[in-house]
Amino acid sequence: MAKILIVDDSRTSRRMLRAVLEEIGYTEIEEAVNGEDGFIKYKEIKPDLVTMDITMPKLDGIEALELIKKYDADAKVVMISAAGQREKMFKAIKYGAAEFITKPYEKNEVEKIVKGLLD
């Protein structure tokens, strides 16, 4: 079973994404509450996939993506955004983001992207 790490400062957003991931069959899910926590947990648990919110305090999603990709160039990181963040998306592409998901979560979109990267 693939391990997924959800990195998001919003408890609501983590809960919503966890519910969708569980519904599509992924139950090994860990959570991190900001970019810094996400990088630490990435090194600890070596997840198969990371979902990374872009807008977070402390270390934002782009900075955390950069750290993770430097640590593990093969890391699969899906960026989560509330839309409208064109510049940040360009940066995320530059740093090696695998995919993008827009909030609020739509099951079909999440399933297509996550399964596409993990299966």
Binding site: D9, R86, E87
Partner: peptide, 29 residues
């Protein structure tokens, strides 16, 4: 936190609408 997420979606959609006019917004947490 749930209210904040709702606002985050509203702000995101507003930023998307502005991006059609090449106005880029930086969303803060």
């Amino acid at each position: 936190d749930a209210i904040a997420e709702l606002i985050n979606c509203i702000t995101g959609m507003y930023a998307t609408a502005l991006s059609a006019n090449r106005i880029d917004m930086e969303l803060y947490p």
